[in-house]
Design a protein around this nucleic acid. Structure first.
Length: 231
DNA sequence: AAACGCTCCAACCGCATGTTC
DNA sequence: CGAACATGCGGTTGGAGCGTT
């Protein structure tokens, strides 16, 4: 493990100079191999910190500024469906990072919706099993034809855990409604040039969510319905 | 102007998973 | 197969900035 507490690395806010060094590194070497950054550039930051800085701030794909109404709406809907699976949610909100979405939820949206942390049952549980059944990040762009990562033997435990709370299932089930066809085009923030928000993402999203509740068959049927109806 | 309290976001941390050897 | 390393995730925290007294 990386010595996060190791004194050889600096902590705290990044300086302009550090940002510049990291930007230069990425320009030359590309993303990845983050542990090489301090060795190659002499930057006094651990690889993990460099990765985070790039992903959350320096990357040109990161959108700065306030969240729009549309983004709020999208996040709320996705959070209802997915719980605290911030990376998955962020994957569907163009230009926003998981950290941004998480912070925005915790500081604005949860208040707006009057969600108390301890009462957010979906979030509390999903955050736990989402670690267990974590989806590879590159599945964000994967096609619906690919195997769903959570469709392995491990799902059972998570499913049981979720099913133990009937309310969660009920909550999620009744939340499926907004994601159905009628609302999809009207309320989801769709961008023609963003791969995350095109229809396969919605399909995948639904697949994953249903999968957690043992509703793969339903999802398949629904996917077929949507794909034949809308696309 | 100073002290205090609060908000919010960047960054840290621990852990899980994936990859390589 | 297992150890070591690399990457990614979600929860949490530290502190800058702002408002209030």
């Amino acid at each position: 493990m990386e010595g996060a507490g190791s004194s050889e690395y600096r902590k705290g806010l990044w300086t302009v100079e550090e940002d510049r060094i990291l930007m230069d590194y990425v320009k030359v070497h590309g993303k990845g191999k983050w542990n090489h950054v301090p060795k190659i550039t002499g930057l006094k930051r651990c690889g993990k910190s460099c990765r985070l800085r790039w992903m959350n701030y320096l990357s040109p794909s990161v959108k700065r500024g306030d969240f729009s109404e549309e983004e709020d709406d999208l996040i709320i809907r996705l959070h209802k469906l997915l719980g605290n699976r911030w990376s998955l949610i962020a994957g569907r909100v163009p230009g926003r990072t998981d950290n941004q979405v998480k912070n925005h939820w915790n500081t604005h949206l949860s208040k707006k919706l009057g969600v108390k942390k301890e009462k957010c049952k979906v979030s509390a549980s999903s955050s736990k099993f989402s670690k267990k059944f974590r989806v590879k990040s590159d599945t964000k762009l994967s096609s619906i034809d690919e195997p769903i990562p959570s469709c392995n033997g491990k799902v059972k435990g998570g499913l049981n855990a979720m099913e133990s709370d009937a309310e969660k299932t009920k909550e999620i089930t009744c939340m499926q409604e907004p994601i159905f066809a009628s609302d999809y085009h009207e309320n989801f923030w769709l961008s023609n040039d963003d791969p995350y928000t095109c229809s396969p993402s919605l399909m995948e999203l639904l697949d994953e969510s249903f999968d957690f509740f043992g509703m793969v068959c339903k999802a398949a049927g629904f996917s077929f319905f949507i794909s034949t109806t809308l696309f």
